[in-house]
């Protein structure tokens, strides 16, 4: 059983992950003469329960893609379908981890997570139990009553992941969730997220700058070109799960990584001599 957040007409696909289908999606911010063509057109699909990463240079439109898929920004052209239904309003059966955590500074860690319950009007006791479970899984026990400024960067990211998961959405959108973290914390959080995903099999669209992270987590990696971003390559990652901390153990890892570097080089993103 799961809580349904949605009112009438809201999109709440079946449990276990929703599918995403994106066709001809593009976005231009603002109006001429100050219009900024930020994205696309792009096409991609994410199957139900799949973990897909979007990797690309800064400013190529990754965050924009996420906002469009969540129905939070109007698209300029194209369409997005969630479980086969066209997206016409903000998606509510979704958990979003925003770039640099976006916690409410006036709420404790637990308060930030319980925001979902309050706004969505979910059952309080059940949500508390779920929050406690997530805090345990994410190594946040003892941090419940601390305010964001009393948490380390890694803990803040973990809290914001808990906030994105507590209402048990069928889709998770993550925008550089580990961007600001040190390498050690990143590797651990990546592993924790992978285990969590293996248990729940939510559909994940994961945005990152990090080639290691993309390969370490994904079923597929979509590589984007510089702004206005397009998807230039799709790489299927066939590595066993859960994946180890040191990905270099796999010869395939080096191949995947080299492939992505080559694409970036051919796009002029890297200019090494």
């Amino acid at each position: 059983m799961r809580d349904t957040a949605a009112g009438d007409g809201a999109i709440s696909p079946a449990r276990g992950g929703a599918s995403i289908r994106v066709r001809g999606l593009s976005k231009t911010y603002g109006r001429p003469p100050r219009a900024v063509h930020a994205l696309g057109p792009i096409d991609f699909d994410v199957a139900a329960g799949e973990f897909v990463s979007l990797i690309g240079p800064s400013g190529c439109g990754k965050s924009t893609t996420m906002l469009l898929v969540a129905g939070l920004e109007p698209m300029t052209a194209g369409r997005v379908e969630i479980d086969g239904r066209p997206l016409t309003r903000p998606l509510s059966d979704v958990g979003i981890v925003f770039q640099d955590h976006l916690l409410l500074e006036f709420r404790t860690a637990l308060g930030n997570v319980m925001l979902q319950q309050q706004i969505r009007g979910l059952d309080r006791d059940r949500q508390r139990a779920r929050a406690a479970e997530l805090f345990a899984r994410l190594g946040l026990v003892g941090a419940e009553d601390r305010y964001p400024w009393q948490l380390s960067g890694g803990m803040r990211q973990r809290v914001s992941i808990a906030r994105a998961l507590v209402h048990d959405p069928s889709m998770l959108l993550m925008d550089e969730p580990f961007g600001a973290l040190d390498a050690i914390t990143r590797t651990q959080i990546r592993h924790d997220l992978e285990l969590l995903w293996l248990d729940t099999r939510k559909t994940v669209l994961f945005i990152t700058h990090s080639i290691d992270e993309a390969i370490g987590l994904s079923d597929r990696v979509l590589v984007m070109s510089p702004a206005p971003g397009r998807i230039v390559e799709e790489i299927r990652i066939d590595l066993p799960r859960p994946r180890p901390a040191h990905l270099g153990d796999y010869p395939e890892f080096a191949r995947y990584a080299r492939r992505i570097y080559e694409i970036f080089e051919s796009l002029g993103i890297y200019r090494f001599r």
């Binding site: 949605a6 809201a10 939070l72 409410l104």
Partner: peptide, 15 residues
Amino acid sequence: RLYYLARSADASRWH
């Protein structure tokens, strides 16, 4: 972006 967060949770104006 907090408004994005609110809208994705289907928040009413009052909430």
